[in-house]
Nucleic acid binder design. Structure first.
Lengths: 234, 234, 234, 234
DNA sequence: GATGAATGAGCCTTCATTCAT
DNA sequence: AATGAATGAAGGCTCATTCAT
């Protein structure tokens, strides 16, 4: 599933594994195999519970080789995060690439790309999601990704606001809050969608739900109209 | 043998910790102290990385006592989750107690209570948040809480839909998705708000941001009006 | 990190143990060293009281290596039992191998082999002896050995009975009881003989004592003659 | 079973246990209750595995009281051994008390008493049996009992030898060996008999088996006749 | 006479990491 | 390029034992 075939244990020429003959392979390939195994392992068990032994075995190599290429568990995990982060951001960027469309269309395209990617690569997504709660330095790495995405959203909202003739009414901090709300809602929906093994909604359905959820509100804000608590508010 | 210190290097700085000897205290009190220390520890390092040694020391007691009262690391963590879950749900429920107001007022009240509680008890919130990714049986415990809250939201939305004269148009699954989006957005905002050490928004400000974000959309849906991708959507 | 000793108070007398660094050795050899150390440790302190720390140290390796090769304390103990059991049974079998001699000669040969082996490998014998009272799954393992040996004795007695023309007079249960009595007597004598540090009887002397003790009775039984309590027996 | 009712947990007035009211009882009685619980616990789990917590709970008292009366786990176990030892030896002595009968009758009486006692008090017997393999100082205690019993047997054999007109032919050491063989056979049979939950032989049947096993040989020895290996003996 | 509260010490086990080949 | 052999450091858990009431 995930990506790039993570066949457990036997790589290349299956059945050869014993008898001293270790397949010589170019470094780059081996590294990707290791990262594949690591992503699966970390997704399945979390950072702490995943063991280097298991990862090495799943990658079909010996532990010293993992250390030779990736230095330490921490760096291995960081490498996983970085690879998956790049893949996700690239996917979303690719979805939004077409300029010249309206703001809601752009947002919709981005969300579709996001949900499609997380559905296609659930282990990668799980790693990113879990990494947020694994303390430093992993949280920063994911936070950086969040900023990247949030930036995308913010520029989109800001531009849309300008187009709508609403200049500067939205405070910097409010936009930031809205972007976080949007990202959080998207993450939560992605998890919810992935968890449904049967009857899973398509990426587009999920994206539509989210657009329905938030677009009207965002549009209002850009027009300067806002919700306020009724007079009874204590 | 009590104290007398046999271990070389452990003595030396007496007076550190809570004044040497072991204070006698009723069990209930000690248990709360332990839970306090545990919540802090688990929030800071996560379930796996937090060590029972550290928690015991932070609680000002010896490890065996922790085990005597709370049986195991797993049960200790579960106890933390349960305590914080109960506190959070109770806080939200208390905020929503007043009946007879409109749906948006009720949602607003609930969100205010939620953001106020997570801001007041950030470690408790972090524990709940992190527990979701720590595997069984913790995930279930938190999932149950999420269901509790989601249920609240769903009944609110459902009732509002009826009031708005829209009967049954919203599919079961769509409502579920919306509730998840709302909860995810709230969680994300809570984290964002708590992370700002200076210039932190108040609970009401955060709640207002979220209401602005989503209420218009929800209202539309209840009236049967929805967002759809433009004609160009591939 | 190798050695460098961080623990305060552990350094000081270098050269103790097998000369500092870790000698590389093939797995099979190391495993035997571990089993040797374990047999000694378990014989000396019993299963529960023997500590893996001590066993590892006595074997000249670190604890993790013991776990790497032998999985757990339970499996280590089981491995000891199995090794010693095989050695003992093989020794007795080898002693009885020559066929064609009379029953008493065969029994005598087996006993000589038994006492010679237990004298030559007292720790191994102690492990087997103690294992019987260490609960499952160890008791079964030793029980199986006892059955093996008891079977030997029973077939010998049965055959001798046939040769003596006594067919079937000895009830199944009585033969079983006799075999247990014989084995118990042998075990007790082995312990007694081993305990005498000076003036220890040779294996043959001990075997002779036992033959004197029981052979006449067994012979009588095979002839159908038995001891009965006098008329006064209440 | 065992003896003196070891009702688990509730003593005296059942149901009262909570509510502060701890039955005041004379020390001697409490001590016996503790010993009862301890004998059961040690028999069931062995010295190391039996925990003071469990014993105290089974005795229906708190741990400090056990320590107040019996000082330590070691002394508690020793006390158990001593009590059971005294009971067993007394039982055997009582069986042999009648003088004036022939040597085989006396031995028969003693064996009957032995098997009857071990069958009636299996936990007590198990404790004695297991204590032999629990290292010092317990082994000595049991060894002392063995000496006591072996002495009995020796004096019986010695006297019988004199009656049979065989003066001094039996070396000191040989008699000692024979006595050990007899005791070992008896122990093994006791265990074998107790292990059969159904179809268990009576004490007299077991005693008869043992008499058949050994009496002829002993009688021969007292007459100066012995078994010797055939000419082929290497 | 009796106990609830508390602890020092140690044990089994596992893990990330390295050295020598 | 790749690995079998090996270990320091810690972590979860339990136990015998003792104060203070």
């Amino acid at each position: 599933m995930g990506r790039r075939g993570t066949a457990v244990g036997t790589v290349g020429t299956p059945g050869t594994k014993s008898r001293g003959g270790h397949k010589r392979m170019p470094r780059a390939v081996r590294e990707q195999q290791m990262l594949d195994a690591a992503v699966t392992g970390f997704a399945r068990h979390g950072y702490q519970a995943a063991s280097m032994d298991d990862i090495a075995e799943a990658a079909g190599v010996s532990k010293p080789l993992v250390y030779l290429y990736l230095k330490s568990k921490e760096e291995l995990f960081t490498a996983c995060i970085r690879r998956e982060r790049a893949a996700l951001v690239e996917a979303v960027r690719a979805g939004t690439r077409e300029r010249g469309t309206s703001a809601d269309q752009q947002l919709w395209d981005g969300l579709c790309a996001f949900f499609a990617h997380t559905a296609a690569s659930p282990d990668g997504w799980t790693v990113l999601h879990r990494a947020r709660t694994q303390g430093e330095p992993f949280a920063s790495e994911v936070a950086a990704m969040r900023v990247e995405i949030t930036e995308l959203v913010r520029s989109l909202l800001g531009q849309a606001a300008q187009d709508a003739g609403c200049d500067g009414d939205l405070a910097e901090r409010e936009v930031s809050g809205l972007a976080h709300a949007l990202v959080g809602a998207a993450e939560s929906l992605a998890e919810w969608a992935n968890a449904r093994t049967d009857d899973a909604p398509t990426a587009k359905e999920t994206a539509a739900t989210l657009m329905n959820f938030c677009w009207a509100g965002l549009e209002n804000l850009m027009k300067g109209s806002r919700w306020t608590p009724g007079p009874r508010a204590r």
